[in-house]
Design a binder for these strands. Structure first.
Lengths: 259, 259
DNA sequence: CGCCTTCTTGAAGGATCTCAAGAAGGGTGG
DNA sequence: CCACCCTTCTTGAGATCCTTCAAGAAGGCG
């Protein structure tokens, strides 16, 4: 099998939460896909479109956008390399939100037929896909709390904390730096604020020595930023014991080789 | 098989979006469950709890709650009879949000082992469960747009429209009435507002002849309310062609009996 | 070098919150 | 059947957070 660093990213994400046999892992690594560079500020999945493939993010940041009738946009999810941004489209092919790169990004379009075939042949993969979607859904729920019940400073701090953990660089002592190619205007779209107020909010975090956002995000004091953002990583299910597939519940203690 | 009106509700919800054979439908109707009355303002699934069952709402309204560190709560989802409020816990048993009845409610606790066994034996059921969870996720995403980009009046109007469609009574001409046992304070928890401002907002909708909320919700003018709430029901996937299961993608055109 | 995007700053206005208190409604016990 | 209590709804006034509008500075790229 040829080296597939792109699908390896996705496999890593799956095996973080689900136990897969080596055979199942090879099925994932063997998924077909059509790589593509996408430009920023340009939807590569449009609202209402019926899609026949899911998009794996290989490089760059991607936003999932909702919008109001008069065209104001809201980022409902941020996706980083390794995320299959619209895996859910396998079971729900009518896109209810658009996908757009926040900076230049690389994606791999994976046909639904291949994903469906994998899920049909390997129930453990079907379950892993489902679980992966639910991890994203838990993040959506937390964003609702963020928008509904936190002020500007906490919202931005919370978002930075989340992306740091999801990027695998937090929690940690000392300065944390990670790629964060998101403009202040896009940050506003994600936090339900105006770009102007995002600017002032970041300035306040910067002044207090908590964090800064340039092309990279810098977190100077993790504990203080997590406190400011009221951040508890539990919802990310990031350091959780991977779940065993359905079959085991019925069959018993058959051994599965993990990751 | 005994008459199971409670599970019939859930089956109806599943077959709205997924095609199931009669055999698969009978498996759903044959799911075991432990019925229970739950009082309002009392969590029946607690934050962080590890659950071994999912809760089907049989009667009443249930809220899914997130909360901030200092205990302020935010409703991230509203569930009505027929919803399996935490079906996702089958693949993600650590609860990241609490479940609480908004008024007195009846639930049916369905063991995960039974759901897992059904999913393992019938891939089409696994897929239907997954799709059902994604329907809820699409609603979460829309709520983010609602909280991030709409003002108080639109938020409340949008929520009313959503619940009317999900309750199966809208769109329609003339006055629409449906059960809505949600206090103004709880409405505030759902829309990220204070109870006081919810009150003033409802008064404004009432004054303009759009809608009213007492123990029932009354929609006097659907088109006007939908316009005020910037509401487009597409995200609910409510009147969509039910999806066929994985197997068909591989096998071809084997016939499935719908609903 | 020049253009375009992004960042930054100021000032004024408005939407929503906070605090406080009274009115209405529904259930329960005497 | 009435009185009482507790929750919910309602109203007012002042405070605050965030937006809006406008314009200039900084930075990246052809």
């Amino acid at each position: 099998m040829p080296d597939r660093p792109d699908l390896r990213l996705f496999l890593n994400r799956l095996t973080r939460r689900s136990v897969l046999t080596t055979e199942e892992q090879e099925v994932v690594l063997g998924l077909p896909g059509h790589a593509e560079h996408v430009r920023s500020n340009r939807d590569f999945v449009r609202l209402g479109e019926r899609v026949d493939h899911s998009c794996l993010i290989v490089g760059g940041f991607v936003g999932r956008f909702g919008q109001t009738y008069n065209g104001v946009r809201q980022i409902v999810a941020l996706h980083i390399p390794g995320d299959m941004a619209d895996l859910h489209s396998v079971v729900q092919p009518e896109a209810t939100s658009a996908l757009q790169a926040l900076s230049t990004a690389t994606i791999l379009r994976v046909p639904h037929v291949a994903l469906r075939a994998a899920a049909a042949a390997y129930p453990a993969l079907a379950e892993a896909f489902w679980r992966d979607c639910m991890a994203d859904a838990a993040i959506l729920a937390e964003w609702i709390v963020n928008l509904g019940r936190r002020n500007a400073r906490s919202r931005v701090a919370h978002l930075l904390c989340e992306m740091a953990v999801r990027s695998g660089v937090a929690p940690a002592r000392g300065e944390i730096v990670f790629p964060f190619p998101v403009t202040q205007s896009q940050l506003g779209d994600a936090t339900g604020m105006t770009a102007v107020h995002v600017n002032r909010t970041i300035q306040s975090l910067r002044r207090d020595g908590l964090a800064d956002v340039r092309s990279d995000a810098h977190i100077y004091d993790w504990d203080a930023l997590a406190a400011a953002g009221d951040f508890d990583p539990a919802y990310l299910h990031f350091h959780v014991e991977p779940q065993r597939p359905f079959a085991l519940a019925a069959v018993g203690s058959r051994r599965y080789k993990s990751s």
